[in-house]
């Protein structure tokens, strides 16, 4: 509970933050809401020598319409996402997901950028950005690039971000007309997911599945899109048995996690049950 010694910087511009990052490289850590980083530092599991606080950079916290997409600044908190009218209307999946992250305190401090960059394999937000088909903007001193959500999560606590890059924006397509849901299995309502399932469906007449994107968290070393499952349902009429049958494929090709809260067998089972329930709940929403 007593971190190692570190030096603290509070840059007021992105440029300044990027310069600091390029100077200190691996010895530095960016600080967003601190809801994961500070615990790790207190347990001395993370021991950065330099802490670069993104909290004083004004233009990283916003939610705004941008053509047919919605742009969310990396420093936007869960609470802001949860309360955003714009998102509620056009991208309710993010709202639903942000609402079930941790508790009030965590939602008030924790940021979407922090959550995605941290890439905790049991975090909620990664599942939602995967299912909503978002893109992530990575900025470095000499430029920027866009990374697809599917390519962003590499493995536990590892993303496609280079050490000199900062995630600045998440851009999600508006999903009006889609049916969306995020469901998580967790020991207590405030816990990380044992498994979490985000679903985004477009239904045609007779519940025919015209589009499907799912995000799975908690099951593996990273959040992922269950492609075999999506393929099995694409174009199909979504009835109870079709859904149940396809749900069995949610962990296909995946090495499923195991820890004191769930064995891999139980976790796979829950992933299937929650997948089926998520699709059914989304359809009925």
């Amino acid at each position: 509970m007593y971190p190692n010694r570190f030096e603290y910087f509070a840059p007021t511009s992105l440029q300044e933050a990027l310069s600091l990052l390029s100077i200190y490289q691996d010895e530095a850590k960016l600080l967003a809401g601190g809801q994961s980083l500070l615990s790790l530092m207190k347990l001395r599991l993370a021991n950065p020598k330099y802490l670069i606080d993104l909290g004083h950079i004004a233009d990283l916290n916003y939610i705004r319409q941008n053509g047919d997409k919605i742009a969310i600044g990396a420093m936007t908190t869960y609470a802001q996402i949860k309360d955003s009218e714009l998102l509620r209307k056009d991208c309710p999946l993010l709202v639903k997901t942000a609402s079930v992250v941790g508790d009030v305190q965590v939602r008030n401090r924790g940021t979407i950028g922090g959550s995605l960059s941290h890439a905790d394999p049991a975090a909620d937000m990664p599942a939602a950005v995967l299912a909503s088909g978002a893109e992530l903007k990575a900025v470095h001193l000499n430029g920027e690039r866009w990374i697809k959500a599917e390519e962003f999560f590499v493995t536990t606590f590892t993303t496609a971000l280079a050490p000199n890059e900062i995630l600045t924006e998440i851009r999600a397509p508006t999903l009006a007309g889609h049916k969306t849901i995020y469901l998580k299995a967790a020991p207590r309502p405030t816990d990380f997911a044992i498994v979490g399932i985000a679903a985004c469906l477009r239904l045609g007449p007779n519940n025919r599945c015209e589009g499907i994107a799912m995000g799975v968290t908690g099951a593996s070393d990273k959040a992922y899109r269950p492609q075999a499952l999506e393929k099995a349902l694409q174009g199909e009429k979504l009835d109870f048995y079709t859904i149940r049958e396809a749900a069995a494929r949610v962990t296909e090709g995946i090495e499923v996690n195991e820890n004191i809260h769930a064995s891999s067998g139980f976790r796979s089972h829950l992933a299937q049950v929650y997948t089926a329930r998520a699709i059914q709940t989304a359809m009925n929403s």
Binding site: D103, P187, R188, T190, H261
Partner: peptide
């Protein structure tokens, strides 16, 4: 060894 793994009941739930 942390409250992430030693699960106390909370007011919600």
């Amino acid at each position: 060894t942390t409250f992430m793994d030693y699960l106390k009941p909370t007011a919600i739930g």
